[in-house]
Design a protein around this nucleic acid. Structure first.
Length: 320
DNA sequence: CATCAGGGCCCTG
DNA sequence: CAGGGCCCTGAT
């Protein structure tokens, strides 16, 4: 394996661990984390890369060392582009100042901002990989989603050994396209098999260009995503925020999130949740243009606390 | 054992 | 635009 290094400097403040590890995510064989280090595979321009993202700075003077492992040689421009993509995906260059100025006035948000100062939303995958994830999340428990992701990695992924880790890198759309709908059904993907095949086909045929879509309007992004078979309002809402960094709108709340939000924001018994319209109004009124960020901070704060010491009301709401 | 809802979406009427 | 069907799984 060839190895390369890039230095990155996120805008301060930067909380490395709260940005590079999200305790609410389920484990996946394409990444590993320990405090100060995230290992993450990445399919970039068709190449399977092993990344090591290391904290070399502090919250106020952030520095990140990005190690890149590759089977083939990489030219300097390619290496730079990997660095830029990692910075984009984890919002290294987003200035949190305005959000903090507004958020500090909110009595519920302020403590979370203090505890997690420098936390940024992060999506460690490409749009294509996120679409696949969105499909395997639909209508199933965490265990089943984990199993389907593992199947995808084992069947179509590339196993990488680097820096003492063994991780899978997700296959390119062309590789996933070699598996038929019937084969996915045999792997217990159920009706999602059809969605996997059709979304993959859209990428193989070049009908979706993630980089170009980043510059388009919200409406154009929504239309492009909705046109994909198996991608509806819930998946689109996650993608608009996680992949395209639109942090000013929450337009979909699923029942399990509704129960958690009801407890968090209204201290309601999750079995008797408040209507989603009330949640939408609350988010809009209290957090306005930063509602996705505000909810993310409160959400992550809850999951870090849960990880440290299980929260009794939360456990039954997470369907394992 | 049977039934059913579920971390959506598509399609039909 | 409301509601049934869809693959499976786990809860009852």
């Amino acid at each position: 394996m060839n190895q390369y290094t890039v230095e990155l400097r996120p805008i301060a403040p930067f909380n490395f661990d709260a940005t590079m590890f999200k305790p609410a995510h389920f484990p996946s064989a394409d990444n590993a984390w320990q405090p100060g280090t995230r290992w993450q595979t990445m399919r970039w321009q068709g190449l399977a890369l092993g990344l090591k993202i290391e904290n070399c700075g502090t919250t106020n003077r952030p520095r990140v060392r990005l190690g890149i492992w590759s089977r083939g040689k990489l030219d300097p421009a390619f290496v730079e582009s990997v660095g830029a993509e990692v910075a984009y995906r984890s919002s290294f260059n987003f200035d949190l100042a305005e959000f903090y100025r507004i958020g500090r006035a909110d009595p519920q948000l302020a403590p979370a901002l203090r505890r997690w100062r420098g936390l940024r939303p992060a999506c460690y995958t490409s749009l294509y990989e996120y679409l696949i994830l969105a499909i395997v999340l639909q209508n199933c428990t965490v265990r089943r989603s984990v199993s389907m992701m593992q199947t995808l990695l084992e069947r179509c992924g590339t196993q990488l050994h680097y820096d003492g880790k063994t991780l899978y890198c997700m296959g390119a759309p062309e590789e996933i396209a070699r598996v038929t709908e019937d084969e996915w059904r045999a792997c217990k993907f159920g009706y999602r098999a059809k969605s996997i095949v059709r979304v993959t086909q859209a990428f193989v045929e070049g009908r979706i260009d993630e980089i170009a879509l980043r510059q388009k309007s919200r409406a154009e992004q929504r239309a492009a995503l909705t046109s994909l078979y198996g991608i509806g309002p819930a998946s689109v809402d996650y993608i608009l925020s996680d992949v395209f960094h639109r942090w000013d709108e929450i337009s979909h709340i699923s029942p399990w999130e509704q129960r958690i939000y009801s407890k968090l924001f209204f201290d309601r018994n999750p079995e008797n949740p408040v209507p989603v319209d009330r949640l939408f109004r609350l988010f809009q009124k209290r957090f306005g243009a930063y509602q996705v960020l505000a909810v993310h901070y409160i959400w992550e704060d809850m999951f870090w606390r849960h990880r440290h010491k299980p929260i009794s009301w939360l456990a039954p709401l997470i369907r394992l």
